[in-house]
């Protein structure tokens, strides 16, 4: 998405403190930080990502089927049932892109919670009154 500023030439309400880039020592320390994060299990593996996508797809189907069923049960005509729709959106850490497979509180039972993923999203439905 576009990085549009607030009209004053920079992001945020005040100007940046420092515009200098990272030094070589900073780059090395960043690599160490990323290695620590990977060792702590804070990055999602491929099979967990696939499993989560499957769950999201299944929930999307369930929600769309539910909304059509609810619309028909409410006494609307076939046209409304056809138009009835529900949308799934993500929010929280999943939307920010920092989803992780486990947190420090689950580290003791990490093996048995291999697919313990926190997904947050909401369903939006029309309000036909």
């Amino acid at each position: 998405m576009a990085k549009s500023n607030n009209g004053n030439g920079y992001l945020g309400v005040t100007e940046p403190i420092s515009l200098s880039g990272p030094t070589e020592k900073d780059v090395v320390r960043t690599q160490e930080v990323e290695k620590c994060l990977a060792d702590a299990g804070l990055y999602e593996s491929q099979e967990e990502a696939v499993s989560r996508e499957e769950v999201l797809g299944k929930l999307d189907q369930i929600v769309k089927a539910w909304i059509k069923k609810a619309t028909r049960a409410s006494g609307f005509g076939d046209q409304f049932v056809q138009e009835a729709n529900a949308k799934i959106f993500t929010f929280g850490s999943y939307r920010l892109g920092v989803l992780c497979t486990s947190c420090i509180f689950y580290s003791d039972c990490k093996r048995s919670c291999s697919i313990n993923i926190a997904i947050t999203f909401c369903v939006i439905w029309f309000d036909a009154v």
Binding site: S51, L59, I115, I117, T120, D127
Partner: peptide
């Protein structure tokens, strides 16, 4: 849901229907 922790919230909007 299928071993995945899901935090599900609902929001109804004031639209005649929800466009795809």
């Amino acid at each position: 849901f299928r071993g995945v922790q899901v935090d599900l919230v609902y929001a109804g909007v004031c639209l005649p229907w929800c466009p795809t």
